[in-house]
């Protein structure tokens, strides 16, 4: 059962990866190229200035060419990421289905897609947004990665806590009020986290604002596409598989909780 779900999740994740790759090729890559053009211009200016002062900078060796990075490199990264998140999605679904809410598998899948998008991408990226090449300082990569991971971990933990709170409150106040209180708690928790964690602002003053904005909206679009495909795609396949297995009464589910 879990095996079937896991394979299905990875399959949907793989398909989502293909869609995200297409999106990234069309919308994301032009922004990456513009950012790299900015970077190259900055580097050239620095090399020229250094040469004028008698310093000769060693050229950095290029391990992977730009066309390779923008095609097969991008494809590899996005496919691995999509397939891996598809697998994780399936494992969370295996636990959540029939446990968290009294909804069918399709609705559970869709709900997990939405909550996953918010917890894994949207909230952490509101605090530490995606950056195109040449925006981050090489010396701070350790700190930036740590802070990003911490923000993401806090967001996920807050989401898990909010869902459990929602479940608990639903018995007493009903689903709508419980969901409202849980959502407010999640927002309050991540707002405190975002306020407490240090800000990172390393965007060069003359970096083109339009490129930065477009890069970030494209990154947002890629993740929205990924999570929508996971939530709906996994739901379609699972809903179909479960339709044959027949419906179970609320009494059985209640019994499973005792």
């Amino acid at each position: 059962m879990v095996r079937t779900l896991l394979i299905r999740g990875m399959l949907v994740g793989f398909l989502a990866g293909l869609l995200v790759f297409g999106f990234a090729r069309v919308f994301g890559e032009p922004q990456v190229d513009r950012a790299i053009a900015f970077e190259t211009a900055m580097d050239d200016a620095r090399i020229k200035a250094d040469a004028a002062r008698g310093i000769h900078d060693a050229a950095e060796p290029e391990l992977v060419s730009r066309p390779m990075q923008a095609s097969y490199g991008l494809l590899t990264g996005v496919m691995v990421y999509g397939t891996a998140f598809g697998g994780l999605f399936a494992l969370v679904f295996a636990f959540a289905n029939g446990r968290l809410v009294a909804l069918g598998p399709r609705a559970v899948s869709g709900l997990l897609g939405l909550l996953g998008f918010v917890a894994f991408y949207l909230v952490p990226n509101l605090k530490y947004p995606a950056n195109p090449p040449s925006v981050g300082h090489p010396d701070t990569i350790g700190l930036r990665t740590e802070l990003y991971v911490v923000m993401m971990a806090l967001s996920i933990a807050a989401m898990v806590a909010a869902v459990m709170l929602c479940r608990r409150l639903a018995f007493r106040y009903g689903a709508w009020s419980a969901a409202t209180i849980a959502a407010a708690s999640y927002i309050a928790a991540v707002a405190v986290a975002a306020w407490a964690l240090p800000a990172i602002d390393e965007v060069p003053g003359d970096f083109p604002a339009v490129v930065l904005w477009n890069f970030r909206t494209d990154s947002f679009g890629m993740q929205l596409l990924l999570w929508t495909t996971l939530g709906l795609g996994f739901g379609v396949l699972t809903g179909r598989a479960d339709a044959d297995r027949g419906r179970r009464s609320m009494r059985q589910i209640s019994a499973a909780w005792r």
Binding site: L63, Q69, L74, T76, G77, V78, P133, T145, Y148, Q223
Partner: peptide, 20 residues
């Protein structure tokens, strides 16, 4: 080395991870 980093570089930026 830096080969893995260089190979997945564009996806790392676009997926929202910190890079350079």
């Amino acid at each position: 080395g830096m080969y893995v980093h260089e190979w997945v570089h564009d996806s790392r930026h676009l997926l929202g991870f910190p890079c350079h």
